[in-house]
C-alpha cells in the first residue's frame, strides 16, 4: 500500500511543486498519473523513492520514507526511469540485470535463474549478452524493464514507459505492463496507453490533484482533459 498524506514539496524556496497532496494506492492497483508538462508527475515518483524529501508523510506499507527506511523501501519499489540511457550503466544487459539481485544478497546462481526467467518471459533471450551502448532505444526500454523485473519488486513505477517507441515496441511494452501482477504507477502523456494499462487515473495540475477516479470516467471527460493541456485518447475519438 502506498500513501501520500498531505505532502508538500518545493525544489526552490517559494516555488511549490507539490502542494498538500493526499492519495492512497492499494496493493495490486494499476494507477495512471497524468498531467501537463511540469505538473509534478516525475516529482511524485522521486518522493516515493526517497530521492527527495518533503513536508508531510509518504508511507510505503505503513513505513515512512526516510533515510533509515530507504534500503528496505527501495527493495519493494522498482523504478523504470524516463530515460533508459541513465538506467543502464553496466556493459551488458545481463550484468545490468544481475546488479540489483546481487545487491540484495541473492546468490549468483539464484540471480542467474531470475535473469533467465525474466528474459524468457519478455521474449528477450537473445538480448542477454548484448552491449548496452549497441542496442536501439526500444530494445533499451525493454531491457530497462527487464532489469527492474529481475529485482522482483512489490510495486513498479514507470515514468513515460512508451515515449519514443515505435508502434510495435509500444504495443510490446503495453502488453508486458498488462501482464504484471504487481502494483503499478505509470506516468504518461500517452493516454491510450494509460487507458490500456490502468483502471484508475489521477490527474495532476500544478502540484494538486484535480481528479482521481476510474480511468473510464476521467479519460472520457473531454472538458476536464482539455482544461489540463490534454486531449481525448484516440481510441475514443474514432468514429
Amino acid at each position: 500500500m502506498i500513501e501520500f498524506d498531505n505532502v508538500s514539496f518545493e525544489y526552490e524556496k517559494g516555488k511549490p511543486v507539490i502542494s498538500g497532496m493526499s492519495f492512497r494506492i492499494e496493493d495490486g492497483e494499476a494507477v495512471g498519473l497524468i498531467g501537463a508538462n511540469g505538473a509534478g508527475k516525475s516529482t511524485i515518483m522521486k518522493l516515493l523513492l526517497g530521492l527527495v524529501y518533503c513536508e508531510g508523510h509518504v508511507l510505503i506499507d505503513g513505513t515512512e520514507v526516510s533515510k533509515d527506511s530507504l534500503h528496505h523501501i527501495r527493495q519493494k519499489l522498482g523504478f523504470v526511469l524516463q530515460n533508459s540511457d541513465n538506467q543502464m550503466f553496466m556493459p551488458t544487459v545481463y550484468e545490468d540485470m544481475m546488479f540489483a539481485p546481487l545487491n540484495y544478497m541473492v546468490s549468483r546462481e539464484e540471480a542467474e535463474k531470475r535473469v533467465d526467467a525474466v528474459l524468457a518471459r519478455l521474449g528477450l533471450e537473445d538480448m542477454k549478452y548484448k552491449y548496452n551502448h549497441k542496442i536501439s532505444g526500444g530494445e533499451k526500454r525493454m531491457a530497462a524493464i527487464a532489469t527492474i523485473l529481475a529485482m522482483e519488486p512489490e510495486a513498479i513505477l514507470m515514468d513515460e514507459p512508451t515515449s519514443a517507441l515505435d508502434p510495435y515496441n509500444r504495443r510490446l511494452v503495453i502488453n508486458t505492463i498488462r501482464e504484471l501482477e504487481q502494483t503499478k504507477i505509470i506516468t504518461s502523456h500517452d493516454l491510450d496507453m494509460i487507458y490500456d494499462t490502468c483502471e484508475r487515473v489521477i490527474l495532476i495540475s500544478d502540484g494538486k490533484i484535480v481528479a482521481d477516479g476510474r480511468a473510464e470516467d476521467i479519460l472520457r471527460n473531454k472538458e476536464l482533459l482539455e482544461a489540463n493541456h490534454m486531449e481525448l485518447p484516440l481510441s475514443f475519438c474514432a468514429r
Binding site: L51, Q75, N86
Partner: peptide, 23 residues
C-alpha cells in the same frame, strides 16, 4: 546530471557502497 541520475539508478537498485564484482 547524467552521472547523478545513473547514481540514483544504482541506489534504487540496492547499491550499498560495494560492487559485487563478477568472480
Amino acid at each position: 546530471d547524467r552521472a547523478q541520475e545513473l547514481y540514483s539508478s544504482m541506489l534504487l537498485r540496492g547499491y550499498h557502497q560495494h560492487f559485487h564484482y563478477a568472480p
